[in-house]
Simulated scan of single mutants.
Amino acid sequence: MFMTGCNDSKEASKDNFKAAINQYLGNSCFLVSDNRRGFPTSFAILPKEKTFLSMKDQWKRDAQVRYDALVELGFLKTEINAKKTEKTYYLTEAGQTAYTSEGRNSLSSDRVQAGVCVTRFEVDEVLRFTEPSAKNGYTVSKVSYSVSLAKDEQAKQEKLVETFPELGKVLSSPKGQSAILVLMNDQWVHEKSINQ
């Protein structure tokens, strides 16, 4: 089966770059941050007719819209108190599996934060790459690529894009993704994977 030789994984090719980026994307996700509130978390129920909101109340309303979407997707469940003044969000079993306190958004900020990993990405196509060159003692190449939701996640796409417009922008902008890949002794890796 392995007739192509031992050094193929070190070649600068679209297939090798696709594998390297997918390996990186597999360790991260589209993260809905909880701003380190944790779960369960509660919000005062704001009257629907209240149109003028303070910045704090607007943040709360926006957060609840996102959390309500996570309820529909099966990650959270809710409970309303007897006076109907407060709504509390709890992680479901699926939510407990998807929740992380050290999440990394694969297509935006790589900052570690807490939240629910609602979906994952994979590379559709490597569009182009630079000729490998030396930089800071490494051989590197800049790669442009398009992404889609991972195949087992695609059933959620319509609801996810409706709720999280930033995700829709990512999926409809194939030329917007790029990465620096670094040649190691045995294969190419995403630059952000080197020290992980």
Results as ranks from 00 to 15, higher is better:
Gly74Met: 07
Leu73Pro: 13
Asn27Leu: 12
Arg61Ala: 10
Gly74Val: 09
Asp68Asn: 15
Tyr67Arg: 07
Phe30Gly: 11
Val65Ala: 14
Leu46Ser: 08
Gly74Leu: 08
Lys60Glu: 11
Cys29Gly: 13
Pro47Ile: 07
Lys56Gly: 10
Ala44Thr: 15
Cys29Gln: 13
Leu25Trp: 02
Phe52Cys: 06
Asp57Trp: 00
Leu31Gly: 10
Phe39Met: 01
Leu70Phe: 00
Ser54Leu: 07
Ser42Thr: 10
Pro47Asn: 10
Glu49Leu: 00
Phe43Leu: 07
Arg66Ser: 12
Ser42His: 00
Phe52Asn: 13
Ser28Gln: 15
Thr41Met: 06
Thr51Asp: 13
Asp62Pro: 05
Pro47Gly: 05
Thr41Tyr: 01
Glu49Tyr: 04
Arg66Thr: 05
Ala69Gln: 07
Arg37Tyr: 06
Pro40Gly: 04
Ala63Glu: 06
Thr51Ile: 07
Asp62Glu: 10
Phe39Tyr: 02
Arg61Pro: 01
Arg37Ala: 15
Leu25His: 09
Pro47Gln: 06
Ser54Met: 08
Phe39Ile: 03
Leu31Gln: 04
Gln64Gly: 04
Leu46Pro: 02
Gly74Ile: 09
Asp34Ser: 05
Trp59Gly: 12
Arg66Leu: 03
Cys29Phe: 07
Pro47Glu: 13
Arg36Ala: 15
Val65Ile: 14
Phe75Asp: 01
Gln58Lys: 00
Phe43Pro: 02
Val65Arg: 07
Gly74His: 10
Ser33Trp: 01
Gly74Asn: 09
Phe43Tyr: 11
Arg61Gln: 05
Thr41Pro: 03
Glu49Lys: 01
Asn27Arg: 11
Pro40Ser: 09
Ala44His: 09
Trp59Ile: 05
Phe75Ser: 06
Leu73Ala: 12
Asp57Asn: 10
Val32Glu: 04
Asn27Pro: 01
Glu72Ala: 13
Asp62Gly: 05
Leu25Asp: 15
Ser54Glu: 10
Lys48Thr: 14
Val65Glu: 11
Lys56Ile: 11
Ser28Pro: 12
Ser33Lys: 04
Asn27Asp: 14
Ala63Asp: 08
Ala69Arg: 03
Leu31Arg: 07
Gly26Trp: 04
Phe43Thr: 03
Gly38Ser: 00
Arg37Trp: 04
Arg36Trp: 09
Arg37Cys: 10
Glu49Pro: 01
Met55Cys: 03
Val71Phe: 05
Leu70Pro: 14
Leu46His: 06
Val71Asn: 12
Val65His: 09
Tyr67Leu: 13
Asp57Ser: 12
Gly38Asp: 03
Leu70Val: 05
Leu70His: 08
Leu25Gln: 12
Leu46Ala: 12
Lys50Ala: 12
Lys48Gly: 13
Phe39Val: 07
Leu25Thr: 14
Thr51Asn: 11
Glu72His: 14
Gln64Trp: 00
Ala44Tyr: 07
Phe30Trp: 08
Asp34Cys: 03
Leu73His: 11
Leu70Glu: 03
Tyr67Lys: 06
Lys60Gln: 12
Thr51Leu: 06
Glu72Leu: 10
Leu25Gly: 14
Lys50Cys: 11
Phe39Pro: 03
Lys50Trp: 09
Leu31Tyr: 00
Ala44Trp: 04
Asn27Glu: 15
Lys48Asp: 15
Cys29Lys: 04
Gln58Asn: 08
Arg36Tyr: 11
Ser54Ile: 07
Leu73Val: 06
